[in-house]
Write a protein that binds this DNA or RNA. Structure first.
Length: 553
RNA sequence: GGUCCGUUGGUGAAGCGGUUAACACACCAGAUUCUCAAUCUGGCAUACACGGGUUCAAGCCCCGUACGGACUACCA
């Protein structure tokens, strides 16, 4: 069989050769230890935590080595293409401030020299490589239709042998040239398959940057390189693109470990030097005591939109992801609480080998600490962006008086305290926690500790004695006086020593006033809240509570 | 079914042959002359999946078992 003839028959219009492409995409001018990383999502419309997890690792490794980080869109499966998915990908990475040096839709002053970065636009390139493989006898056209393949698979399953297209099952492996020619002329649809010469009984040791030394068997599957529509499969596109784009470390999910033998054989067949491989562990979650992979359908927290909608700060999410990504990050961050995460020396070999369990509590804790370090002005801007993006109609409620908001945030964050408070987790939670300051969104649900009549008496006594000019001490003295009046312990120690002598304690009395003013049992310092609210609003609130207690509302 | 990967406390996770197995989160208790989800102090846990083996010595090496996961598509 004349392979050159076959190659020309299959792809008469492809004139460029791999050598041409080698010239078009020369080796990158980078330092020796610079790493070229890439993230290659397929535009299915769903971008998840795992994508960010990988992207963050890619970005750190590339940039801390003065390398390159690029975005490639793997749109080879036209059945799964979703409109607008690419925009979602870009905007999500943008929100989390993951910066690409080049790639799809990336603005780059130096030019995107290794594009196009959409695989559909690279069809000629793949076909040129496939043609070359055919010419070398390393690939061949296959005319088996899906029905035949399906039957074959069923048969293999019945025989309990490995399924697939290999060895004696690869019926198109040695077709007669004349037959192929006739088929082509009859417009029969075909795919291009690799002519594998591996033996799965042979095992090799392979070094994965994350997993360490692993065992891989040789591939013997005549995998499809180009599908009937001329578009490559993931495997072939990967072996061509990551070579031409000069990726130095292929970092991807561990679900690719199983197909690594195919990729290894492909790189060899194409005569492409092997990049390093790093297979990341899966993000897991605890579900009814079982550790399982996060699933798109069951776990809303897998979607990055979830964090965006609640208003988690992108940097906080990234810090959390870093703790999952590199086990020594957390300790470093504890020692360098104010350093930018880019100052951390990221290492691939310090990535976890087993599935990291996603822990929302920990994310929240990290988020609290992170936000507590911000200045109230920054928090305000952050809230502003959030409200603008998610609930623009409320802009006026929260931001019409920024000085007022700033006072609220100062108190809420405890900026005047020796140690700041860590109550704020994400934007929507902050807004909910300060809603009581704003009449338009204030919706109290009172839950008083004392019975109705006592609460009324306490609130009335407080109003009767209220003087907005009182300082904290004077204010508190008045509370004590009211307490004494109703046989409530004014001193906590007295109460503790003899609880039966009183009907309650000063803390409980304060709670009544706190609930009456804010609708909450837990708030920052009450006196300060009243100072911020101003006299008129305080009295309005107290009367509102009285009305409710008296059944007038 | 086959191939590969994994298994340290409630959770993340260090330790990679040699004292009481770090650290963090969560949790619990006490403290805090107003609460608290904040802060301080203290504590907690039947943690090295199981069974063999190698060794003076094993979470760490070897073998097997169990369990979990991934792959096994003209999907990525």
């Amino acid at each position: 069989m004349n392979n050159q003839l076959l190659a020309d028959l299959l792809y008469p219009n492809i004139t460029k050769t791999p050598a041409d492409y080698e010239n078009i995409y020369p080796k990158r001018a980078l330092d020796d230890n610079a790493e070229v990383m890439r993230i290659a999502p397929s535009p299915t419309g769903f971008i998840h935590l795992g994508n960010l997890y990988g992207a963050l690792a890619d970005e750190r490794i590339a940039h801390q080595s003065n390398g390159v980080f690029f975005l490639r869109i793997e749109d080879t499966d036209n059945k799964r293409l979703v409109k607008g998915a690419v925009e979602t990908i870009i905007s999500t990475f943008d929100y989390f401030k993951i910066e690409f040096d080049e790639g799809a839709e990336v603005k780059n002053n130096n030019g995107n020299h290794y594009g196009p970065y959409y695989q559909r636009q690279r069809t000629d390139i793949y076909q040129a490589y496939a043609k070359d493989l055919v010419r070398k006898g390393l690939a061949y056209p296959c005319f088996c239709d899906e029905e035949h393949l399906k039957q074959q698979r069923t048969k293999q399953q019945e025989l309990k042998i490995t399924t697939g297209y290999y060895g004696p099952w690869a019926v198109c492996r040695n077709l007669d040239f004349e037959l192929i020619k006739a088929n082509i002329e009859a417009n029969k649809s075909f795919v291009i398959r690799l002519r594998s010469n591996g033996d799965p009984k042979i095992k090799h040791s392979f070094h994965d940057e994350i997993k360490g030394d692993i065992t891989v068997i040789e591939n013997d599957q005549d995998v499809i390189l180009l599908k009937a529509d001329g578009i490559p499969t993931y495997h072939f596109a990967h072996a061509v693109d990551d070579h031409l784009m000069h990726t130095t470390i292929v970092l991807r999910g561990e679900e690719w470990l199983g197909t690594l033998p195919i990729h290894l054989e492909l790189f060899k067949a194409l005569n492409h030097p092997l990049p390093k491989f790093a297979h990341t562990s899966q993000l897991m979650k605890m579900d009814n005591g079982i550790k399982r992979k996060l699933s798109k359908r069951k776990d809303p927290e897998l979607s990055l939109d979830y964090y965006r909608q609640l208003g988690y700060h992108p940097d906080a999410v990234k810090i959390y992801l870093m703790t999952l990504l590199n086990w020594n990050f957390e300790e470093w961050f504890l020692k360098n609480p104010d350093a930018d995460i880019t100052a951390f020396k990221f290492s691939v070999n310090k990535m976890g080998q087993s599935g990291a369990l996603f822990d929302l509590d920990k994310l929240n804790n990290i988020s609290k600490t992170f936000l507590s370090k911000k200045e109230p002005e920054e928090i305000m801007m952050y809230l502003k962006n959030f409200v603008q993006e998610n609930d623009a109609s409320k802009m006026d409620i929260y931001f019409k008086d920024e000085a007022y908001l700033l006072q609220i945030l100062n108190l809420g964050m405890g900026t005047n305290l020796k140690k700041r408070r860590k109550d704020y987790i994400y934007a929507s939670q902050i807004l909910a926690s300060i809603a009581y300051y704003f009449d338009d969104v204030y919706q109290p649900s009172y839950d008083f500790i004392f019975d109705k009549s006592l609460c009324i008496k306490i609130i009335e006594a407080f109003i009767a004695n209220y003087d907005h000019r009182d300082d904290n001490a004077q204010w508190f003295d008045k509370l004590k006086a009211i307490a004494t009046q109703f046989n409530i312990a004014a001193e906590m120690n007295d109460y503790k020593n003899n609880p039966d002598a009183y009907i309650g304690n000063i803390s409980e009395l304060a709670e009544v006033l706190r609930v009456a003013t804010t609708g909450y049992k837990n708030t920052p310092d009450l006196w300060s809240i009243m100072q911020i609210m101003q006299e008129k609003r305080v009295l309005t609130r107290l009367h509102q509570a009285l009305d409710t207690l008296n059944g007038k509302m």
